[in-house]
Design a protein around this nucleic acid. Structure first.
Lengths: 198, 198
DNA sequence: CGGCTACTATGACCACGGTCATAGTCGGCA
DNA sequence: TGCCGACTATGACCGTGGTCATAGTAGCCG
């Protein structure tokens, strides 16, 4: 996750996502973002003339693309790709983080949904786009594994739904139980979809 | 959902939950809660000397108990209770609301998790308790339907995870697609657990 | 060198919101 | 009648935070 030395603009977007997923959108201040990114405060209004809304939108977009990119990397790391195996990897990213760094952060996209879905139309659309750019690669991977096209999208939505919910519960309980449970229960069911027509 | 004439204290807790699930915890003001509950502003510090944190905690607790109570009512309305049927009812409560009143609100427990998990220990515990008082009746219902005891809890966690995630996605997309998809895909898999040992 | 553009720097403004302090009402009870 | 407790009413305080205004620096180009 520790990105190499990018430009200050990208660093601020990245930092915004980091802070949002920990504290929520409302509790994340612009000054705080600049400080976290070690970027000058004056750059905020220069790079993000649209203000906080623009910054949040871009952070959400960044998170969506990041999640989408991870899918390809998960697949590359899997000797024999199966839907359940992919889902296990998606879950494992979170259990690993929670065991390594504690339960401080959640999903920034979920945070933006909760905080902005009603108040900011543009952010709500950014969130919808982020979910789409995440679901897309998952559905594509499922079809490559032999899941019928119509079900692939549906199962991708199910996977991401279950993951997002389990993240919430695990964070509240400060325990990875929900995440591991969801992976264990849903994995076999996903694998079954490879063999049967939906 | 329109509760009858309760005392002002209960009305404020209820209103807090309502506002939190729409705007998030951070964007929900105390004055706003009092106004929504048609309660005097001065009552806030009288009934909730612990301040906003106490009010939020109680709102979360109220939401958890509400969700738990609904499970029994769903079961009562089902001619032949099955896990998939129960899950369909849980989902339907949300699709109904979204079709009736728009996508303004989400789950207050999820909102509190995102906004307070890191900042307020007491709220995080309240959220964990709320999830427990929600999962409990679900797991109990599953065992009554013939699901082996060890799996009942796990499947209850899966159901609530998938539901919470689908709520997020549906709200972002302003479309009940994610909710109906999750119900359709997960329902049969849940029913299958009734007949097979886990 | 002059000027232009990109970027940085910083203080001020202003609204919002949680909390506190202080006082007021009102009903019951001796 | 007079006290007392529960509840209400309101204004003030103060920190926070998004935004704006204004100016400063740095590098490039003509």
């Amino acid at each position: 996750m520790a990105e190499s030395e990018r430009g200050p603009r990208e660093r601020m977007v990245f930092s915004a996502a980091q802070l949002i997923r920990r504290e929520g959108v409302g509790a994340t201040g612009m000054r705080e973002v600049a400080a976290h990114a070690e970027a000058p405060r004056g750059s905020l209004q220069h790079y993000f003339p649209g203000g906080k809304e623009q910054l949040v939108d871009e952070a959400v977009g960044w998170a969506g693309r990041y999640a989408g990119r991870r899918i390809a990397r998960f697949l590359a790391g899997l000797p024999e790709p199966t839907p359940g195996g992919l889902f296990a990897e998606m879950v494992r990213q979170w259990t690993d983080e929670y065991e390594r760094e504690g339960f401080a952060g959640g999903c920034p996209v979920a945070a933006a949904t909760v905080d902005c879905a009603e108040s900011s139309a543009s952010t709500r659309e950014a969130v919808a786009t982020a979910f789409a750019t995440w679901t897309g690669p998952v559905a594509e991977a499922l079809t490559d594994m032999g899941v019928p096209g119509e079900r692939a999208g549906a199962l991708a939505t199910l996977m991401i739904s279950a993951l997002e919910g389990a993240i919430l519960i695990s964070r509240a309980e400060q325990d990875t139980r929900a995440l591991t449970t969801v992976a264990r229960e849903l994995g076999p069911l996903l694998d079954a979809a490879t063999h049967t027509a939906g």
